[in-house]
Design a protein around this nucleic acid. Structure first.
Length: 365
DNA sequence: ATCGAATTCCTTACCACATCGGTAG
DNA sequence: CGCTACCGATGTGGTAAGGAATTCG
C-alpha cells in the first residue's frame, strides 16, 4: 500500500524505474535502453566492469520522463531537448543561459552525484569513498563519541530520539541513508565515479551486454526486489520504515555540490517518499530504536561517509545569480554600474541571440 | 623570557542589479 | 482559481581594509 501511494501519489508524473517499477527513475541507461532509479542503477551497474562502464544520463529534471540532453548552467539543471526548448525559449534572458551537451556518466552511482551538471566540480565529483587507515583512526574517536552521544540522548529523550545540534546531522544521515540504503551493503567501498574522460573518448561506451552479465543482473534484480520488500517496513529493526522510492537522490547531490536548482528543491518536497518532515515520523515513534551491532556498524559507516562528504565552503543557492555576478563589471572588486554603452551592447547582444535562436543556435556567453 | 616590528593569514564590508517571492488587483 | 504586475528583499564575486596570529631579531 505504502509503495503504491508513493508511486501513484507523489510521483505520478515521473517515469518509474523499469526494473523495480516502484521508484521514480533518475537515470537512463543507453545500453539497457531503460530508465532506472538510483538503487537499481547502482545495483545493476556495479555488477561487473562491463556494465560499470555503461553510459547513462540523468533523467530530465523538468518533465522527469525523458533522458536529459543538455545541461543548463544558469539553472543548474539537466533537461531533455523538449523541455530545453520550452524553458529557454520563454524569454531573451533564458535564451542566454549557457547550455552544454550533457556528458554521459559511467561507474557506480553510490550516493548522490557531486553535481547534476555534466561537468565535474573540482575534486568533488569523484567522491571516492576510500578509507585511509589514518583517517579511520582519526575518525574513530569522533565517530564513537558521536554515536555514544546519540545513544545517551536516545535514552534521555522521551520521544526516543535526539534533538538539538545533532538533529541535523542525523537527518542528513537519514537523507543520505534513503539515497544509499538500497545499494548493496557489500558495495560500500565502491566508488562513486563519474568517469567523464572515459566516456568522452568513447572507450567507456559500451552497448554490448554479455549474457553472463545479464544473468547476474537478473539475479541482482531479484535479490534487490526481495530486499526492497523487506525494507518497506521493519518496525522491529529500526523503528521506522524505509521505502524503495529513492526519488531523485540526484537532487540532494545538487545540494552537496553547492548548487541548488530550484526545480530539484521542489522535487524533493514533492517526490520524497517520506512525509515532508520525514524525520517527524521517525522521531514520533513511541518506541526508541534499539540498535543491533549490525545496525550500529551500518550507522557508523554511514556517518563516516557523510562526514567525508561534508562541505564547509560557500554554498551557491542561485546559479543564475552567480552567473550574472561573474559577468558584472567591477571596480576594485566592487560591482560597478553598467555604462550606457555596455547596456546597449547587452541589449544588442540579447536581440542577436533572439534572432539566432530562431535558427536553433544555442546561445552562450 | 620579553618586547616590538614585520609578515602572513583570515574575516568582513562594499558595490550593482537580476532574480526571487510575496502581495494585490 | 489562475494570471499579471508590482515591489522589497535577497544573493552573487572580487577586492581592499582591518584585525588576529605568527615569525624574527
Amino acid at each position: 500500500m505504502l509503495k503504491e501511494e508513493m508511486s501513484c501519489g507523489n510521483r505520478s508524473r515521473a517515469r518509474v524505474c523499469d526494473t523495480c517499477r516502484a521508484a521514480a527513475s533518475t537515470v537512463y541507461c543507453r545500453a539497457h535502453i531503460s530508465y532506472l532509479c538510483a538503487g537499481c542503477d547502482a545495483r545493476i551497474h556495479a555488477a561487473n566492469q562491463v556494465v560499470w562502464r555503461h553510459e547513462r544520463v540523468w533523467v530530465c529534471e523538468a518533465c522527469e520522463r525523458a533522458p536529459a540532453a543538455i545541461t543548463c548552467k544558469a539553472d543548474a539543471a539537466s533537461l531533455c531537448t523538449s523541455c530545453d526548448a520550452d524553458i529557454h525559449s520563454a524569454n531573451p534572458l533564458a535564451r542566454r543561459h549557457h547550455r552544454v551537451r550533457i556528458l554521459p556518466i559511467t561507474g557506480c552511482l553510490v550516493g548522490p552525484p557531486a553535481t547534476h551538471l555534466g561537468e565535474p566540480v573540482g575534486p568533488e565529483p569523484g567522491r571516492f569513498m576510500t578509507h585511509g587507515a589514518a583517517d579511520e583512526e582519526i575518525e574513530e574517536d569522533e565517530t564513537g563519541s558521536w554515536f555514544l552521544l546519540n545513544s545517551v540522548k536516545n535514552k534521555n529523550q522521551s520521544n526516543g530520539f535526539l534533538f538539538g545540534g545533532e538533529v541535523d546531522e542525523y537527518l542528513d544521515l537519514v537523507e543520505y541513508n534513503s539515497c544509499t540504503e538500497n545499494q548493496f551493503h557489500d558495495q560500500q567501498q565502491q566508488h562513486y565515479s563519474v568517469d567523464q574522460q572515459e566516456t568522452i573518448d568513447g572507450t567507456g561506451s559500451d552497448s554490448v551486454v554479455p549474457v553472463q552479465c545479464l544473468e547476474v543482473e537478473v539475479k541482482e534484480q531479484q535479490l534487490f526486489k526481495h530486499q526492497q520488500h523487506e525494507m518497506e517496513y521493519q518496525p522491529s529493526k529500526a523503528g521506522f520504515c524505509y521505502t524503495a522510492s529513492i526519488s531523485h537522490s540526484v537532487s540532494m547531490s545538487s545540494m552537496d555540490a553547492g548548487v541548488v536548482p530550484d526545480s530539484t528543491m521542489s522535487d524533493i518536497s514533492n517526490s520524497h517518499p517520506r512525509p515532508p518532515k520525514g524525520s517527524i515520523d521517525l522521531f514520533s515513534s513511541p518506541i526508541p530504536p534499539q540498535f543491533t551491532p549490525m545496525d550500529r556498524e551500518a550507522r557508523v559507516l554511514r556517518y563516516r561517509e557523510k562526514r567525508k562528504t561534508r562541505k564547509f565552503e560557500k554554498t551557491i543557492r542561485y546559479a543564475s545569480r552567480k552567473a550574472y555576478a561573474e559577468t558584472r563589471p567591477r571596480i576594485k572588486g566592487r560591482f560597478a554600474k553598467r555604462t550606457d554603452i555596455e547596456v546597449e551592447v547587452d541589449q544588442m547582444f540579447s536581440t542577436t541571440v533572439m534572432v539566432e535562436s530562431v535558427y536553433g543556435i544555442v546561445p552562450s556567453f
